[in-house]
Design a protein around this nucleic acid. Structure first.
Lengths: 185, 185
DNA sequence: CTAGCCCCGTTTGTATACAAAAACAAGATG
DNA sequence: CATCTTGTTTTTGTATACAAACGGGGCTAG
């Protein structure tokens, strides 16, 4: 397990819009989980985590509750929280749902997109193909994500985008985890 | 606005599985919001709410964060939280997404459902039609929901069910609110 | 030697206390 | 008279303190 040396920035940079502590913590924790630095099934010890992040338990607990709602952590009664397991079946479920959402996004985007949007998407698409051809996986995925996000934006359906993003966090996590275990061997 | 007289039960009934306080609060708050007893745009004063529920602010805040993730409340930086507004467009968005999910659920259910499941669903369907014919809206909706839940169960896709339930809370809220404002006039 | 039980340390759950930020109001000043 | 300022009060955000529940280790009895 990684050591989590990075404490949160004590003071916000100038021009920073009022970021709440638990929200900063939230993003940080989410990244740690999605990128696999906090491995599945890891028990989240509140005292330790709070210490590592340089905050007290209260905002940490609030962030954990939020993550629990997103499904990235599981709450165990009287035993705190642990990073959600990532079973193969679960990932398949997630992709199935994302597929349905993408289908809807495609429909809506077709109906709503402006000419400029379409041009942009097409450009991204070719860019993606280029990365694919070169075997540049990282940029390929980045492009792919960009296309999906652009599409979601074109749908004009913020709810759809929100739900998709939530599931996408899990999907990204699955990819990270897969990469990690591949590199490890 | 209703007065929220009901405090939480002090002691759990026998046979109760270890319910955490913030979870009890969570369900209660969610119900209050969904059923319209906490109107849209209502500011959630933590001290007052905590007092009415007979708890301290800490578990209340945790519940609020969870609800924020579900989209039922909005967090205002340094200004607490308020019940999410329920704009017409938002409701349309939600129904669009639910539609897509139902389509997927239908497909999967067809593939996975046992004979018994199908019989059950058909029975529920006719029951629903009966209520519809009698104009018994309440039972009609109850039946309708039961069918959807049964379908989701048949899909064997727990993620799909979770996402659907989250959106369904919003949909139910929309119906409650609509009914409220109709009765009011 | 093993199984059961009790005590104690650790960890979570909840409450309270303290600090900072924002809303509000009154007063001075242009 | 309007407006800016400033002081006060309320409310949120964070930290700490206290209580209950879980887990483990050692002890005793069989």
């Amino acid at each position: 397990m990684t050591t989590l040396t990075t404490a949160l920035p004590a003071a916000a940079a100038p021009g920073t819009e009022q970021r709440l502590l638990h929200e900063t913590v939230l993003e940080r924790l989410r990244d740690l989980i999605v990128q696999g630095e906090l491995a599945p099934d890891t028990k989240l010890n509140e005292r330790v985590l709070a210490g590592q992040l340089g905050i007290s338990r209260t905002p940490l607990r609030e962030a954990i509750k939020y993550l629990a709602s997103e499904g990235l952590v599981e709450l165990l009664p009287n035993r705190g929280a642990r990073v959600a397991a990532l079973k193969r079946d679960k990932v398949k479920e997630i992709f199935a749902v994302m597929g349905a959402l993408e289908a809807l996004a495609g429909e809506l985007a077709c109906a709503n997109a402006s000419e400029a949007d379409i041009v942009e998407i097409r450009a991204l698409h070719y860019e993606m193909l280029a990365y694919h051809a070169r075997g540049d996986l990282a940029n390929y995925f980045r492009c792919n994500q960009a296309i999906h996000m652009k599409l979601l934006e074109c749908t004009g359906n913020a709810t759809l985008a929100d739900v998709y993003r939530g599931l996408n966090a899990h999907a990204r996590r699955a990819r990270y985890i897969a990469n990690l275990s591949r590199e490890r061997w």
